[in-house]
Design a protein around this nucleic acid. Structure first.
Lengths: 239, 239
DNA sequence: GCTATCGATTGACATTTGTCAATTATTGAT
DNA sequence: ATCAATAATTGACAAATGTCAATCGATAGC
């Protein structure tokens, strides 16, 4: 499939997955059963992993690289989220055995673990610790999307960009950083066109944002924050 | 509180709540324990039930009436969802014991059951059937918000309105119906201003939409659908 | 190093959406 | 029924955002 290299679950991958909150507390025997029906694949960049409307045969776990969740309608396309190691995606579809609402493609070369959806559902029914972990994870995903919807509905594109930059500042704990994706994808994620993003970067210059290629420097964080008015109930994606 | 009338859980309310998928399969003893720490309140219209940033002391169940979930930032406000009987709201905050991301207010006179969040979390840990039901519910809520975000990112306001009207057509199984909320709230829900909504209704006239006060008539459903291009992965809120 | 390709940027312009103010319609209270 | 308050509509205008075409710039393959 896509010329990628399939390997069965090695001990090292198993450890990485076991370290995920989602799998950390479940029974050893159940975890082993899950892993027996799982495997790991390497994918080149820009490969479609799943497509919306399809049924969820596998729960995906990003081990390395990164994955873009995107969606299309009527010839338009929009990037909805980026999944980075180590976390899962499309858990909700897997659990309720319903069609994917989003497509997924690799952004860069990525190693993905594929865990049988059927196994997940079956073990979820008999392992209370796993069920609890799934609930916590789902609740967090839900809150994340709500924050996203608030960002979209309450803010202009300039404000969304300003707050995005401040979130990156918080994430990297630094006033300068490199954008981790193409600007066109960032534009799509923020709900605007690439042209508008270009102008938005210009529009933030007066508030102390310098852009050179994909390197961002925040020269005046206070000023930027005064404009962006970040709010934990929108911008803090850890709670 | 708010001059409303508090009553303890009557047998009839208990039955209504027990009939909810969320509570239907759990152990009788656990359900009774939940209900012992619960009560029912009647609220007049436009009463704030909860406010974002607050901690979730109670899981709310709408028994009659309807509740608007909304959010604010920087002086702006946006309606995010309407909760109708019989269903719960703010389950995700309750489960993870995290601050509400949205505020809630009654739209009309409503009867709301309040179930102690602490009890929910405690019984969720020991009742597997309840845990499973919570997972299903959360997964559905998550998918609902994703659909909402897709609607916002992929469609213009005219398209959102057109699809909203088609969803009401499907829900009422009729080509005419009354809007269940003020137009200003509908506008906010659809992510536009009331003025823009007025014009959007006008803009749909050529596609066979007639508006008189809050009564909508679809004279040419096929034509409207050709324009709106409804898609189950955005518009079908049952899956 | 050269060139083809693709993303980023820019300018001109169109469309969409929002704002403000005035007017009309509706609703609720007396 | 009347009046006050609030919602809805409309017009004129402004701001935000998108579209298209041209150009610039980075980069991968040769």
């Amino acid at each position: 499939m896509h010329g990628s290299c399939e390997v069965f679950m090695s001990a090292s991958y198993k450890e990485d997955i076991r370290a995920l909150k989602l799998f950390a507390e479940m029974e050893e025997a159940n975890f082993d059963a899950l892993m027996r029906g799982a495997y790991v694949q390497n994918f080149p960049p820009r490969i479609d992993l799943i497509h919306e409307e399809h049924r969820p045969d596998f729960l995906h776990v990003v081990l390395t690289g990164s994955v873009d969740l995107y969606t299309s309608w009527n010839g338009r396309e929009s990037s909805m989220a980026t999944v980075r190691p180590i976390s899962t995606f499309i858990l909700a579809a897997t659990i309720n055995d319903l069609p994917y609402l989003m497509s997924a493609r690799t952004l860069e070369r990525s190693r993905i673990a594929l865990v049988s959806s059927k196994d997940v559902r079956q073990i979820f029914s008999k392992d209370p610790a796993f069920a609890r972990a799934i609930v916590t994870e789902l609740a967090q995903c839900y809150r994340s999307v709500i924050k996203n919807a608030k960002d979209l509905k309450l803010r202009t594109s300039l404000e969304r960009l300003a707050n995005y930059i401040l979130r990156q500042q918080a994430r990297t704990a630094s006033t300068e950083f490199d954008l981790k994706m193409e600007k066109r994808r960032l534009a799509s994620y923020l709900g605007m066109t690439p042209e508008n993003l270009s102008r938005a970067f210009k529009g933030l210059e007066p508030y102390g944002v310098k852009v050179s290629s994909n390197h961002i420097t925040i020269t005046d964080p206070e000023d930027l924050a005064r404009f962006a008015k970040p709010n934990p109930l929108i911008d803090d994606h850890t709670t």
